[in-house]
Computed example of a mutant assay.
Amino acid sequence: MKRRTVQDIMTKDVVTVTEQTPFAEIAELLTEHRVSGMPVVDDAGRVIGIVTESDLLHKQEYKDHTEGRSLRALLRRNAQAEAKAAAVDAGGLMSAPVVSAAPGTSTTEAARLLNAHGYRALPVADEDGRLVGIVARRDLLGVYRRPDAEIREEIIKDVLVKKLWHDPDMLDVRVGDGIVHLSGRVETKSLVPIVARMIGRVEGVVDVVNDLGYALDDTAARKYTRI
């Protein structure tokens, strides 16, 4: 099975800023390009941080404070937020060090990184740390827009024939809205969950409805086998 990497889905034309980019210009770029964040790069194009809408909003958040709660007490709760609220350029606003992905990172790992760190986008950098692209959550969700016919073809050719050496005529594979319905019969009972699991790993598969039967229950024999 062909596993796509972030290099296959990333945006290569990335809007970036430097540490010296003023606050107002950053706000304008975010609005103009309709992005939620931008990588901060040095003169060599290496990623040194990332600045997001949330970073800019700290200034507005701390501009007005409720009566009875002093600004000093409010800011003391979060020194990092205080620093960003006072920042005037990307160097003061950015989060660093930044988590980035290599071009060969799998889409699965990229999704894990985004969720683990709560990011909306992940810079993609080469082995020297230079920015080569950016991958966003919406890019990763693109795998679920694969046509059902394309998913079914990959299941039959790559999973059943190439990986499992199974006669595809013995199984009925139907795909609708990314949901795979399996019926038919495989040789052994132990193979049933294996087939479903491998099909579930095909990109674009939302779920697998497994109604496979089997010719031989090899799991019963294992229970009585002593090593």
Rank of each mutant, 00 (worst) to 15 (best):
V6Y: 00
L56W: 00
D217M: 02
D218K: 05
I194W: 11
A90F: 08
L122C: 06
V40K: 09
E153S: 12
E61R: 10
E28A: 12
D217K: 02
K157E: 15
Y214N: 04
Q20M: 07
Q20V: 10
S54T: 13
Y62H: 07
T107L: 02
L182D: 08
R138G: 03
S70A: 04
D139A: 05
E109M: 15
Y214A: 13
I134Y: 00
A27P: 10
S95P: 08
Q7R: 15
I9K: 06
R146Q: 12
R3P: 00
H181Y: 11
G129R: 14
E82G: 09
V173I: 15
R46L: 15
I9T: 11
W165K: 13
D207L: 06
R201D: 08
R77Q: 12
Q60S: 09
K189R: 03
D148V: 14
G200W: 03
V40C: 06
S70Y: 10
E150K: 09
V180F: 04
T31N: 13
R138W: 10
R145F: 09
V6T: 00
L113E: 15
V175D: 02
V175T: 06
I199Y: 03
L114W: 04
V6M: 00
V202I: 14
G213D: 08
D43I: 09
S106D: 06
I50H: 01
H58F: 14
T105S: 05
V41Q: 12
T66Y: 11
I199H: 04
I134K: 00
L75F: 00
V209G: 08
V161I: 15
R34I: 14
D42C: 13
K63G: 10
G204E: 03
L164Y: 06
L171R: 03
T219N: 04
G213C: 08
P193E: 10
V195S: 04
D43W: 05
G92A: 02
E82S: 13
E203L: 02
G37V: 03
G213R: 06
L212Q: 05
V99Y: 07
D139N: 11
